[in-house]
């Protein structure tokens, strides 16, 4: 554990609390992509298969259970409690391509051609692009509530903070997880445009608006 990884994980936790806070306080899931949220459930379920056989490190286990539980809970909230506020017409990014592409990448790049390693690799490739339906929805609506942009920022910052963590571990421990590193870099690039608008507008106190 180093400071970058810890900050990354805290950013990930914060993103979920911001999302839940947004849904509760605005009593609406408007602007939140159901498709991205569903992809996150798939990401966590396929990555944390090792919960079934261990080893169960306390920190990791608690976090894994939280990420699975909270992502399923958000889906539940969107599907039932706050269903009418959901932008179903605009939230129509073709996730089949993201899932299919990630699966092909997982078949090509994995540590071993076993079910759990292919699923682990799949989860990383899928996570790297899982925000695309959310960014697509943002593009379609052209603007976003500030709290929604804080959510997306915290979620993107989590993986961006893992990059110095990997650099640190490579230098200090000689440890490199190539799949995680490549997928993490792709994920951060996917967020680049969003980060730019977030830093130039939201941080300056302006509304998140995309040029028409």
């Amino acid at each position: 554990m180093n400071i970058f990884r810890l900050l990354g994980d805290l950013s990930h936790l914060a993103s979920i609390f911001i999302l839940l806070h947004k849904i509760r306080t605005t009593k609406s899931c408007a602007g939140i992509s159901f498709r991205s949220q569903a992809l996150y459930v798939l990401v966590y379920l396929t990555r944390y298969l090792d919960l079934l056989w261990g080893p169960w490190l306390l920190y990791n286990t608690v976090m894994k259970l939280f990420f699975i539980g909270s992502s399923v809970y958000v889906l539940y909230l969107m599907k039932f409690d706050y269903k009418p506020s959901h932008d179903m017409g605009l939230d129509n990014f073709k996730v089949e391509y993201l899932i299919g592409g990630s699966f092909v990448m997982a078949l090509l790049f994995n540590l071993a051609f076993t079910f759990d390693e292919v699923m682990w690799s799949f989860s990383l490739w899928l996570e790297s692009v899982a925000i695309l339906p959310q960014l697509f929805l943002l593009q379609r609506t052209g603007e976003a509530e500030t709290i929604t942009t804080h959510y997306i920022f915290a979620l993107g910052a989590y993986r961006a903070l893992y990059i110095p963590n990997w650099l640190y571990r490579w230098v200090m421990e000689g440890r490199v997880e190539f799949i995680a590193v490549f997928a993490g870099i792709i994920q951060t690039i996917v967020y680049a445009d969003f980060f730019y608008v977030y830093f130039t507008k939201v941080i300056q106190g302006q509304k998140f608006e995309l040029p028409a």
């Binding site: 990420f67 540590l111 071993a112 076993t114 759990d116 682990w120 963590n165």
Partner: peptide
């Protein structure tokens, strides 16, 4: 999974 590397990150 343990043979090659253990995935100890989230």
């Amino acid at each position: 999974s343990a043979a090659l590397e253990t995935h100890d990150e989230l």
